[in-house]
């Protein structure tokens, strides 16, 4: 779905991305992690052609982003920005979703059907003014308007920043649902718990270079690697690593519960 070949990107003489190469298969859920300023958001913007590589090539869904307009790539990609206010431009929730659909679909009947379906699916009141909604609700609305267009590729730039646990789970469950239906997801995130719970693979970025790309279980247990990118493993993983002695394979809370139960039974 996405193919980066020796991609570098620089602006105002500063190198942001250095010679990055990777491939993402259709239907995978990949998290992009790294310290602040590592180039995560830039890499996400390179994925849909908002930024064009200085050297190398980026191919998305078979299109070379340097040769195709971003609005063309947007027909099959969705991009959720950190700040939902930049995406909202209509005075009602319904109009906002319709506007998003109108950008990619021409059939008005289809637009109407999909709009009402999305409103129901995301429990949104179509007549509400988006700007009177809470931040979490606005983020949910923007995600709803993106998902209404049924994108094949979903790019998320720190989608859960500033949200409470309930809203965070709401957003992530929607994303997970879309991923299970076959959409490819690339999520920029600092929240290691969210990464651990939802991503199937992880890429670690440091100073614009790709440090590692692999299965979530392998990456988040690699403390030296995470330390190089100024990151810490999720608390449950850190606990498992520190405990050792059979617990070190536990990556999630469920894994840990099973390991502890097994240990207690063994002791009895």
């Amino acid at each position: 779905m996405i193919c980066f070949e020796n991609v570098s990107y620089s602006t105002s003489g500063i190198d942001i991305i250095n010679n990055v190469s990777f491939k993402l298969k259709k239907g995978c859920f990949t998290a992009l992690i790294g310290a602040n300023g590592a180039g995560k958001s830039t890499l996400a913007r390179l994925c849909n052609g908002l930024l064009k590589p200085t050297s190398g090539s980026v191919s998305v869904g078979g299109f070379d982003t340097a040769l195709v307009r971003t609005s063309r790539i947007a027909k099959f990609t969705g991009f959720l920005f950190q700040n939902p206010d930049r995406q909202i431009c209509k005075n009602s929730v319904r109009d906002e979703i319709r506007f998003s659909l109108e950008c990619v679909i021409e059939d008005k009947t289809e637009i109407g059907i999909r709009c009402e379906k999305t409103l129901q699916e995301f429990s949104l009141n179509g007549d509400r003014d988006p700007f009177s909604m809470s931040r979490g609700e606005r983020q949910r609305l923007v995600l709803a308007s993106i998902l209404a267009a049924e994108p094949e590729l979903l790019l998320l730039d720190e989608p859960t920043t500033g949200l409470d646990y309930r809203e965070c789970m709401h957003i992530m469950e929607c994303v997970s649902r879309v991923n299970k239906k076959g959409a490819t997801v690339l999520m920029v995130s600092h929240d290691m718990e969210v990464v651990q719970d939802f991503a199937s693979e992880v890429m670690v970025l440091n100073d614009g270079s790709l440090l590692a790309h692999g299965r979530t279980k392998d990456i988040i247990r690699n403390e030296p690697l995470l330390a190089r990118a100024s990151l810490l493993p999720p608390q449950i993983t850190e606990l498992a690593i520190r405990l050792g002695g059979g617990y070190e394979n536990a990556v999630t809370v469920d894994d840990m519960v099973l390991s502890v139960k097994k240990h207690i039974r063994g002791a009895e």
Binding site: R45, N48, L50, R69, T70, S71, A74, K75, T77, F79, F81, D85, R86, Q87, I88, C89, K90, N91, S100, C103, V104, S145, I146, A149, L155
Partner: peptide, 28 residues
């Protein structure tokens, strides 16, 4: 940038179309 990522054709070469597309952005 956010609207372009959504599919609004700001990257069009037609200047008049571009001006027409910019007006709704006054709201955000």
């Amino acid at each position: 940038e956010a609207q372009t990522a959504r599919g609004v054709a700001f990257d069009t070469k037609n200047i008049f179309r571009k001006i027409g597309l910019i007006f709704p952005l006054c709201v955000p």
